[in-house]
Design a protein around this nucleic acid. Sequence first.
DNA 1: TATGATAACAGTAATCGTTACTATTATCAG
DNA 2: CTGATAATAGTAACGATTACTGTTATCATA
Lengths: 130, 130
Amino acid sequence: MIKHSKQRDAIIARLSGRTDHPTAETLYQEVKKELPNISMGTVYRNLKQLASLDKILIVRSPFGPDRYDPIPNQHPHFFCTNCFAVLDLDVDKNKILATGQEGFKGEIQGCISSYHGLCPDCLEKLKIKN
Amino acid sequence: MIKHSKQRDAIIARLSGRTDHPTAETLYQEVKKELPNISMGTVYRNLKQLASLDKILIVRSPFGPDRYDPIPNQHPHFFCTNCFAVLDLDVDKNKILATGQEGFKGEIQGCISSYHGLCPDCLEKLKIKN
DNA sequence: TATGATAACAGTAATCGTTACTATTATCAG
DNA sequence: CTGATAATAGTAACGATTACTGTTATCATA
Ligand SMILES: [Mn+2]
Ligand SMILES: [Mn+2]
Ligand SMILES: [Zn+2]
Ligand SMILES: [Zn+2]
Protein backbone atom coordinates (compact mmCIF):
# COMPACT_ATOMS: atom_id res chain seq x y z
CA MET A 1 0.00 0.00 0.00
CA ILE A 2 1.40 3.31 -1.13
CA LYS A 3 1.32 6.27 1.24
CA HIS A 4 1.47 9.91 0.39
CA SER A 5 4.62 11.92 1.08
CA LYS A 6 5.50 15.54 0.48
CA GLN A 7 9.04 14.55 -0.46
CA ARG A 8 7.76 12.47 -3.37
CA ASP A 9 5.35 15.23 -4.36
CA ALA A 10 8.20 17.72 -4.48
CA ILE A 11 10.34 15.39 -6.59
CA ILE A 12 7.54 14.83 -9.10
CA ALA A 13 6.77 18.56 -9.18
CA ARG A 14 10.41 19.37 -9.93
CA LEU A 15 10.70 16.79 -12.67
CA SER A 16 7.40 17.13 -14.48
CA GLY A 17 7.29 19.26 -17.58
CA ARG A 18 11.06 19.33 -17.94
CA THR A 19 12.89 18.32 -21.07
CA ASP A 20 16.47 18.59 -19.76
CA HIS A 21 16.69 15.12 -18.19
CA PRO A 22 18.21 16.12 -14.84
CA THR A 23 20.36 13.85 -12.68
CA ALA A 24 19.31 12.68 -9.21
CA GLU A 25 21.88 15.08 -7.79
CA THR A 26 20.34 18.05 -9.65
CA LEU A 27 16.85 17.15 -8.47
CA TYR A 28 18.16 16.72 -4.93
CA GLN A 29 19.77 20.18 -4.93
CA GLU A 30 16.59 21.76 -6.25
CA VAL A 31 14.14 19.98 -3.95
CA LYS A 32 16.42 20.79 -1.00
CA LYS A 33 15.52 24.46 -1.38
CA GLU A 34 11.93 23.56 -0.60
CA LEU A 35 12.59 20.71 1.85
CA PRO A 36 15.99 21.48 3.40
CA ASN A 37 16.51 18.14 5.07
CA ILE A 38 15.47 15.76 2.35
CA SER A 39 18.20 13.16 1.78
CA MET A 40 19.74 11.68 -1.37
CA GLY A 41 18.41 8.25 -0.40
CA THR A 42 14.88 9.59 -0.47
CA VAL A 43 15.41 11.06 -3.93
CA TYR A 44 16.81 7.81 -5.33
CA ARG A 45 14.19 5.67 -3.57
CA ASN A 46 11.33 7.71 -4.95
CA LEU A 47 12.74 8.02 -8.46
CA LYS A 48 13.17 4.26 -8.54
CA GLN A 49 9.67 3.69 -7.23
CA LEU A 50 8.17 6.12 -9.74
CA ALA A 51 10.06 4.39 -12.54
CA SER A 52 8.82 0.97 -11.45
CA LEU A 53 5.28 2.36 -11.51
CA ASP A 54 5.97 3.69 -15.04
CA LYS A 55 5.41 7.26 -13.92
CA ILE A 56 8.86 8.37 -15.06
CA LEU A 57 11.78 6.99 -17.09
CA ILE A 58 15.36 6.37 -16.03
CA VAL A 59 17.70 7.29 -18.87
CA ARG A 60 21.12 5.69 -18.63
CA SER A 61 23.80 7.99 -19.96
CA PRO A 62 26.96 6.69 -21.66
CA PHE A 63 28.80 9.75 -20.28
CA GLY A 64 27.85 9.93 -16.62
CA PRO A 65 25.16 9.30 -14.01
CA ASP A 66 21.59 8.36 -14.82
CA ARG A 67 19.21 11.06 -16.02
CA TYR A 68 15.51 11.24 -15.17
CA ASP A 69 12.70 11.88 -17.60
CA PRO A 70 9.06 12.79 -16.83
CA ILE A 71 8.02 11.05 -20.07
CA PRO A 72 7.50 7.47 -18.91
CA ASN A 73 7.63 5.59 -22.21
CA GLN A 74 10.99 4.62 -23.68
CA HIS A 75 12.18 6.92 -26.49
CA PRO A 76 15.47 7.72 -28.21
CA HIS A 77 17.87 10.29 -26.77
CA PHE A 78 20.70 12.36 -28.08
CA PHE A 79 23.76 12.95 -25.88
CA CYS A 80 25.91 15.97 -26.64
CA THR A 81 29.57 15.04 -26.18
CA ASN A 82 30.45 18.71 -25.77
CA CYS A 83 27.98 20.16 -23.23
CA PHE A 84 26.51 16.85 -22.00
CA ALA A 85 22.97 17.97 -22.73
CA VAL A 86 20.45 15.19 -23.18
CA LEU A 87 17.82 15.85 -25.82
CA ASP A 88 14.72 14.00 -26.93
CA LEU A 89 14.91 12.82 -30.51
CA ASP A 90 11.78 12.80 -32.54
CA VAL A 91 12.33 9.39 -34.06
CA ASP A 92 9.96 6.60 -34.95
CA LYS A 93 10.92 4.04 -32.33
CA ASN A 94 8.94 1.32 -34.04
CA LYS A 95 11.10 1.73 -37.12
CA ILE A 96 14.18 0.96 -35.02
CA LEU A 97 12.46 -1.89 -33.22
CA ALA A 98 11.48 -3.41 -36.55
CA THR A 99 15.06 -3.11 -37.78
CA GLY A 100 16.26 -5.14 -34.81
CA GLN A 101 13.69 -7.87 -35.30
CA GLU A 102 14.88 -8.85 -38.80
CA GLY A 103 16.03 -12.44 -38.62
CA PHE A 104 16.27 -12.62 -34.83
CA LYS A 105 14.90 -15.84 -33.34
CA GLY A 106 14.39 -14.54 -29.81
CA GLU A 107 11.75 -12.18 -28.46
CA ILE A 108 12.60 -8.50 -28.56
CA GLN A 109 10.64 -6.70 -25.84
CA GLY A 110 12.14 -3.27 -26.28
CA CYS A 111 15.01 -1.23 -27.52
CA ILE A 112 17.02 1.67 -26.24
CA SER A 113 18.68 3.71 -28.93
CA SER A 114 20.95 6.57 -28.10
CA TYR A 115 22.72 8.91 -30.43
CA HIS A 116 25.67 11.12 -29.67
CA GLY A 117 27.54 14.00 -31.23
CA LEU A 118 27.11 17.76 -31.18
CA CYS A 119 23.78 19.24 -30.14
CA PRO A 120 22.32 22.04 -32.33
CA ASP A 121 23.62 24.75 -29.95
CA CYS A 122 27.17 23.39 -29.78
CA LEU A 123 27.27 22.84 -33.54
CA GLU A 124 26.15 26.44 -34.11
CA LYS A 125 28.77 27.86 -31.72
CA LEU A 126 31.45 25.80 -33.42
CA LYS A 127 30.38 27.02 -36.84
CA ILE A 128 30.63 30.66 -35.75
CA LYS A 129 34.14 30.09 -34.38
CA ASN A 130 35.39 28.78 -37.76
CA MET B 1 55.47 4.89 -26.84
CA ILE B 2 53.78 1.57 -26.29
CA LYS B 3 55.72 -1.31 -24.72
CA HIS B 4 54.98 -4.98 -24.95
CA SER B 5 53.54 -6.87 -21.98
CA LYS B 6 52.57 -10.49 -21.53
CA GLN B 7 49.60 -9.42 -19.40
CA ARG B 8 48.13 -7.49 -22.31
CA ASP B 9 48.88 -10.34 -24.68
CA ALA B 10 47.03 -12.76 -22.44
CA ILE B 11 44.03 -10.43 -22.18
CA ILE B 12 43.83 -10.03 -25.96
CA ALA B 13 44.27 -13.77 -26.46
CA ARG B 14 41.41 -14.51 -24.05
CA LEU B 15 39.07 -12.01 -25.65
CA SER B 16 39.73 -12.49 -29.34
CA GLY B 17 37.40 -14.75 -31.26
CA ARG B 18 34.76 -14.70 -28.57
CA THR B 19 31.16 -13.76 -29.12
CA ASP B 20 29.95 -13.87 -25.52
CA HIS B 21 31.00 -10.34 -24.50
CA PRO B 22 32.66 -11.19 -21.17
CA THR B 23 32.98 -8.79 -18.25
CA ALA B 24 36.33 -7.53 -16.95
CA GLU B 25 35.84 -9.82 -13.96
CA THR B 26 35.39 -12.88 -16.20
CA LEU B 27 38.49 -12.07 -18.22
CA TYR B 28 40.41 -11.47 -15.00
CA GLN B 29 39.43 -14.88 -13.59
CA GLU B 30 40.42 -16.60 -16.81
CA VAL B 31 43.73 -14.81 -17.37
CA LYS B 32 44.61 -15.45 -13.71
CA LYS B 33 44.88 -19.15 -14.47
CA GLU B 34 47.75 -18.35 -16.82
CA LEU B 35 49.22 -15.40 -14.89
CA PRO B 36 48.27 -16.00 -11.25
CA ASN B 37 49.24 -12.58 -9.92
CA ILE B 38 47.77 -10.33 -12.55
CA SER B 39 45.59 -7.69 -10.93
CA MET B 40 42.17 -6.27 -11.76
CA GLY B 41 43.74 -2.86 -12.33
CA THR B 42 45.91 -4.31 -15.09
CA VAL B 43 42.88 -5.87 -16.75
CA TYR B 44 40.88 -2.64 -16.67
CA ARG B 45 43.88 -0.51 -17.73
CA ASN B 46 44.62 -2.68 -20.74
CA LEU B 47 41.01 -3.07 -21.81
CA LYS B 48 40.65 0.69 -21.68
CA GLN B 49 43.86 1.21 -23.63
CA LEU B 50 42.85 -1.34 -26.26
CA ALA B 51 39.48 0.37 -26.61
CA SER B 52 41.08 3.78 -27.06
CA LEU B 53 43.26 2.28 -29.80
CA ASP B 54 40.09 0.87 -31.37
CA LYS B 55 41.32 -2.70 -30.98
CA ILE B 56 38.29 -3.74 -28.94
CA LEU B 57 34.88 -2.34 -27.98
CA ILE B 58 33.45 -1.56 -24.55
CA VAL B 59 29.78 -2.50 -24.47
CA ARG B 60 27.81 -0.78 -21.72
CA SER B 61 25.11 -3.04 -20.38
CA PRO B 62 21.80 -1.73 -19.03
CA PHE B 63 21.75 -4.67 -16.62
CA GLY B 64 25.20 -4.77 -15.07
CA PRO B 65 28.91 -4.16 -15.55
CA ASP B 66 30.51 -3.33 -18.88
CA ARG B 67 31.09 -6.14 -21.36
CA TYR B 68 34.07 -6.40 -23.71
CA ASP B 69 33.94 -7.19 -27.39
CA PRO B 70 36.82 -8.19 -29.72
CA ILE B 71 34.93 -6.59 -32.61
CA PRO B 72 36.11 -2.98 -32.44
CA ASN B 73 33.42 -1.20 -34.46
CA GLN B 74 30.18 -0.19 -32.79
CA HIS B 75 27.27 -2.54 -33.52
CA PRO B 76 23.88 -3.30 -31.99
CA HIS B 77 23.53 -5.77 -29.13
CA PHE B 78 20.76 -7.81 -27.64
CA PHE B 79 20.57 -8.23 -23.87
CA CYS B 80 18.67 -11.22 -22.52
CA THR B 81 16.74 -10.17 -19.42
CA ASN B 82 16.55 -13.80 -18.33
CA CYS B 83 20.08 -15.22 -18.59
CA PHE B 84 21.93 -11.92 -19.13
CA ALA B 85 23.58 -13.16 -22.31
CA VAL B 86 24.76 -10.46 -24.67
CA LEU B 87 24.36 -11.29 -28.36
CA ASP B 88 25.40 -9.55 -31.54
CA LEU B 89 22.47 -8.48 -33.65
CA ASP B 90 22.82 -8.58 -37.38
CA VAL B 91 21.25 -5.20 -38.01
CA ASP B 92 21.99 -2.49 -40.52
CA LYS B 93 23.40 0.17 -38.23
CA ASN B 94 23.25 2.79 -40.95
CA LYS B 95 19.51 2.33 -41.16
CA ILE B 96 19.22 3.22 -37.48
CA LEU B 97 21.64 6.13 -37.81
CA ALA B 98 19.63 7.49 -40.71
CA THR B 99 16.43 7.21 -38.67
CA GLY B 100 17.98 9.37 -35.96
CA GLN B 101 19.13 12.04 -38.36
CA GLU B 102 15.64 12.87 -39.65
CA GLY B 103 14.95 16.49 -38.78
CA PHE B 104 17.78 16.83 -36.23
CA LYS B 105 19.71 20.10 -36.49
CA GLY B 106 22.84 18.92 -34.64
CA GLU B 107 25.60 16.59 -35.78
CA ILE B 108 25.10 12.92 -35.03
CA GLN B 109 28.47 11.21 -34.79
CA GLY B 110 27.29 7.78 -33.79
CA CYS B 111 24.56 5.72 -32.27
CA ILE B 112 24.36 2.89 -29.80
CA SER B 113 21.26 0.79 -30.08
CA SER B 114 20.52 -2.02 -27.71
CA TYR B 115 17.62 -4.39 -27.69
CA HIS B 116 16.39 -6.50 -24.81
CA GLY B 117 14.04 -9.38 -24.22
CA LEU B 118 14.40 -13.14 -24.33
CA CYS B 119 17.32 -14.67 -26.22
CA PRO B 120 16.53 -17.57 -28.61
CA ASP B 121 17.62 -20.16 -25.99
CA CYS B 122 15.52 -18.71 -23.17
CA LEU B 123 12.51 -18.29 -25.46
CA GLU B 124 12.81 -21.93 -26.54
CA LYS B 125 13.04 -23.20 -22.95
CA LEU B 126 10.02 -21.11 -22.01
CA LYS B 127 8.03 -22.49 -24.93
CA ILE B 128 8.76 -26.07 -23.91
CA LYS B 129 7.62 -25.36 -20.34
CA ASN B 130 4.20 -24.12 -21.54
C1' DT C 1 -10.78 11.38 17.00
C1' DA C 2 -7.76 7.95 18.87
C1' DT C 3 -5.05 3.64 17.73
C1' DG C 4 -2.07 0.79 15.62
C1' DA C 5 0.17 -1.00 11.44
C1' DT C 6 3.50 0.21 8.35
C1' DA C 7 5.18 3.23 4.38
C1' DA C 8 8.37 6.61 4.17
C1' DC C 9 11.70 9.20 6.18
C1' DA C 10 16.80 11.22 7.50
C1' DG C 11 21.14 9.91 8.32
C1' DT C 12 24.65 7.01 7.53
C1' DA C 13 27.17 2.84 6.24
C1' DA C 14 28.00 -0.29 2.68
C1' DT C 15 28.22 -1.91 -2.02
C1' DC C 16 29.78 -2.19 -6.81
C1' DG C 17 32.33 -1.21 -10.73
C1' DT C 18 35.99 1.31 -11.89
C1' DT C 19 40.01 4.49 -11.62
C1' DA C 20 44.10 6.54 -9.32
C1' DC C 21 48.20 6.15 -6.69
C1' DT C 22 52.84 4.29 -5.52
C1' DA C 23 56.76 1.83 -5.32
C1' DT C 24 58.81 -1.79 -8.15
C1' DT C 25 59.79 -4.34 -12.46
C1' DA C 26 60.07 -5.11 -17.47
C1' DT C 27 60.81 -3.42 -21.93
C1' DC C 28 63.49 -1.42 -25.39
C1' DA C 29 65.87 2.57 -28.12
C1' DG C 30 70.31 4.33 -28.32
C1' DC D 1 74.67 -2.37 -21.45
C1' DT D 2 72.26 1.24 -19.70
C1' DG D 3 69.05 4.76 -18.81
C1' DA D 4 64.41 6.33 -19.60
C1' DT D 5 59.96 5.14 -18.91
C1' DA D 6 55.81 1.99 -19.91
C1' DA D 7 53.66 -1.33 -17.42
C1' DT D 8 53.04 -3.79 -13.39
C1' DA D 9 50.93 -5.60 -8.53
C1' DG D 10 48.83 -4.14 -4.74
C1' DT D 11 46.02 -1.17 -2.60
C1' DA D 12 43.47 3.05 -1.69
C1' DA D 13 40.05 6.05 -3.40
C1' DC D 14 36.25 7.21 -6.18
C1' DG D 15 31.25 8.25 -7.71
C1' DA D 16 26.84 6.52 -8.15
C1' DT D 17 23.67 3.95 -6.05
C1' DT D 18 21.55 0.88 -2.54
C1' DA D 19 20.85 -1.00 2.13
C1' DC D 20 20.33 -0.49 6.97
C1' DT D 21 18.36 1.50 11.25
C1' DG D 22 15.89 3.90 14.36
C1' DT D 23 12.30 7.53 14.01
C1' DT D 24 8.27 9.91 11.99
C1' DA D 25 4.19 10.47 9.06
C1' DT D 26 0.29 8.61 6.90
C1' DC D 27 -3.99 6.45 6.93
C1' DA D 28 -7.44 2.47 7.39
C1' DT D 29 -10.12 0.98 10.87
C1' DA D 30 -12.56 1.20 15.21
MN1 LIG E 1 13.50 12.02 -22.93
MN1 LIG F 1 29.28 -7.48 -30.09
ZN1 LIG G 1 25.94 20.57 -26.63
ZN1 LIG H 1 18.70 -15.81 -22.30
